[in-house]
């Protein structure tokens, strides 16, 4: 698996990535993984908490907010929803 931007998050990221890949290939692609809450959720939370600090420290959190704003149109297009919703 790839590295994390923050070295201190590498270990939990590796565990999460492995869990996700298994879920994706064995459940999601077979139509059995539609819930957000799954066996990888706790790991993701742990990984996410670790990453948040690193993003803030590097000032990336603010850049992300702007980029997400710019991506709203793509969300509307690729999530298959109408723009006016």
């Amino acid at each position: 698996m790839s590295q994390s931007l923050a070295k201190e998050c590498n270990e939990v990221k590796e565990r999460y990535d492995t869990c996700f890949l298994k879920w994706y290939s064995e459940k999601y692609l077979r139509g059995a993984g539609t819930a957000d809450n799954n066996e990888c959720s706790a790991l993701f939370k742990e990984y996410s908490n670790c990453l948040q600090g690193a993003l803030k420290e590097r000032g990336i959190d603010k850049l992300l907010e702007e980029a997400r704003e710019d991506n709203k149109e793509n969300d509307a297009t690729f999530m298959g929803r109408k723009k006016c919703e």
Partner: peptide, 22 residues
């Protein structure tokens, strides 16, 4: 040099998996 997952969700209606990665 690094790939981090920022968010991930499945749309219950369409089944579409949306992921944000840095």
């Amino acid at each position: 040099v690094a790939v981090d997952t920022l968010s991930r969700s499945v749309d219950p209606e369409t089944g579409i998996l949306r992921t944000e990665r840095l």
